[in-house]
Each structure stands twice: as C-alpha cells, then as structure tokens.
Amino acid sequence: MNTANKLTLLRVILIPVFLVVLYLDFPFHMFIALMIFILASVTDFLDGYIARHYNQVTDFGKFMDPLADKVLVMAAMCWFVATARMPAWALVIVLFREFAVTALRLIAAERGRVIAAAWSGKVKTASTMVCICLMLLFRSWQLDAVCVAVIVVTTIYSGIEYFLKNRDVMDWKNM
C-alpha cells in the first residue's frame, strides 16, 4: 500500500474517532473533534497531491478518496443536524448533490468518459470543510446560519455547473 492510500485509510479510520469524540461530553471534546477533523481534512489534500505528483494513483485511491471525503463531511453534518445546529433540509441538498454528481460520473464512465473535478467542486469542498471547522470551533447561531448558507449555495452552484458542463453525457431522448 502506497503513501497516498495510507493517508486515505487514515482518514477513514479517523471518521468514527471523530464521531465518538463529538458525542462524548468531556472537557475540550469539541477542540479535540476539531483537531481530528482538520487532520482528516489535511489528509484529503495530501493524499491527492502525493498520488498525482509521485505517480501513486490507484483504483483503490480513486474509489476510497472521494468516498472518505463524503463520509467525513456527512458525518459532521449529521451531527450538526442531530444537535439542531443545521437544518435537515440543508443536509438533504448536500446529499442529493453528491448522489446526483456521482450518478452523472457513473453514466459518463459507462460511456468511456471521465468527469474531472470542477473548480466549483473544489471550492465547495474547501468552503464546506472551513465552515465545518468554524462551526466546531464556535457555537453561534449567526455563524451556523452563515455557514449553512455558504455550504448550500456552493453545493447547489457546483451541482448545477457539473450538469450544465456535462449535459451531453445524459441522453435525454431515451429517458
């Protein structure tokens, strides 16, 4: 197993640790959860960099890296919904976008085409991770509202962009 895949696997292992720390109530548990989330988020950027720059791209990494990212973010967002810091409809929008873009990529792959990550998708991921960090660090309904708005807007924008730029992948006549 190469370095990039080890970092992805570390992120997968950190997800349940992150959730356990969030749900346990002990001094500084939110700060520790934040540090775990930041570490997991940094491994996301590092594993991609290492895989591309050191020729460590593997099928395992192509599958697990985006899955680990989605599970990490969804775990945090589910906790925010469970603690009434994020409305469930915001989580549904994010889930819908993730499933829709994944489906679009699967259809494209079936047709021999790869849909690379768009710039707006990278902005969505980065802004979502920053917002989650801010929400873990500070407890404020105003900040939560701003972060939810940023997450929802970037999610919707990037989802629409993926479908508009790749509308030729969909065969609307045979649906």
Results as ranks from 00 to 15, higher is better:
V123G: 03
R111D: 12
P16L: 04
P66L: 13
M129Q: 01
A100I: 06
K6V: 03
N174K: 12
V153R: 07
V123K: 03
V21G: 15
M74D: 02
C147H: 05
D65H: 01
A88T: 07
A68S: 14
V57H: 03
S41V: 00
Y162K: 08
S158I: 05
I38Y: 04
E98L: 04
A116T: 06
L10H: 09
A118H: 08
D25Y: 13
G61W: 03
L24Q: 15
N2Y: 02
L14C: 06
P87W: 06
A33H: 06
N2I: 04
R11Y: 12
V42N: 13
F99G: 10
V92T: 14
V17R: 01
L134W: 02
M86E: 00
V150Y: 12
F18E: 01
T155K: 08
R113S: 03
A117D: 07
L72P: 04
I50K: 02
S140D: 14
V94C: 04
T128F: 04
L137G: 10
I151H: 02
G121H: 11
F37W: 13
A109G: 07
R113H: 15
W89C: 11
V57E: 14
R52P: 00
T154Y: 02
V130Q: 09
A76K: 02
L24N: 02
T155R: 02
G121L: 03
S140M: 06
D47R: 08
A84M: 10
R167G: 08
S127C: 04
K124G: 13
R52N: 08
A33C: 09
L67V: 14
D25W: 02
A33D: 05
I32G: 02
L67N: 13
F18T: 07
T102L: 14
D171A: 14
L134S: 13
D65F: 00
N166E: 15
F31I: 11
N2T: 03
T128A: 10
C133P: 01
D59E: 10
I15H: 04
R105P: 10
W141K: 06
I156M: 11
A75T: 14
K124L: 00
M74K: 09
A40S: 11
D44L: 01
A82Q: 05
R97N: 00
M74R: 01
L104H: 05
L95D: 02
I115K: 01
W172C: 02
A149L: 08
N174R: 12
M77R: 03
T83M: 09
L34A: 11
L143A: 02
A117W: 03
K173V: 13
V146L: 15
M170H: 07
K62L: 07
V81W: 11
T154C: 13
F26R: 12
C131V: 09
L34Y: 03
I151C: 03
A117V: 13
M64N: 06
R167E: 08
C147G: 02
I151F: 00
I15R: 00
K6T: 07
V152F: 09
F138A: 13
M74I: 11
V71C: 08
K173S: 14
W119K: 13
Y157G: 02
L19F: 12
L106Q: 09
F26D: 13
F138M: 10
C147F: 12
